[in-house]
């Protein structure tokens, strides 16, 4: 396969790779091994610390709704991430569609100019049309 991957895509992939490595390394290096319960939440650790600092402190309010099990809780967290990822993907999808539409419209006007002008070369038409438009409409 000799698919050409652009430099942009490579940098983006590298960024994701580093983030993944940062998440996996603590697990792979066993950085939680010194604990009784490795990789618990920092908020739970804070609760323990509070009890150590003030043994008589009692939480004076409890959540109105608590997910009945760890499974339900993880489902709700997944739902939250999915909602966010969905909206983000929608945004970039709309943008991409809009840009493609603009490019297509641009190509069409370019063809029309070509047909009318006859002698006008494609490169000239292609260069003159974008300059007349908004600065955001660079050829992809």
């Amino acid at each position: 396969m000799s698919v050409k991957i652009s430099r942009n895509t490579k940098i983006n992939a590298l960024l994701l790779l580093i983030v993944a490595a940062l998440a996996v390394l603590p697990l792979a290096l066993g950085l939680g091994d010194h604990k009784e319960e490795p990789f618990t939440g920092a908020d739970a650790e804070a609760e323990t610390a509070i009890t150590e600092l003030q043994p008589d402190y009692e939480p004076w309010f409890s959540p109105l709704y608590e997910p009945p099990s760890g499974e339900i809780e993880s489902a709700l967290f997944a739902l939250q991430a999915a909602l966010g990822a969905g909206v983000l993907a929608y945004y970039f999808g709309v943008r991409r569609g809009r840009r493609q539409g603009e490019a297509r419209a641009l190509a069409k006007t370019g063809d029309a100019v070509d047909a009318e002008g006859g002698a006008v070369d494609t490169a000239g038409a292609g260069a003159s049309v974008p300059s007349a438009r908004a600065p955001g409409s660079k050829d992809a």
Partner: peptide
Amino acid sequence: FVLSALKLPSVTGSCS
């Protein structure tokens, strides 16, 4: 929304 749903392991052996 996405980022605050991602609980990630960290060097201290806990998650945030």
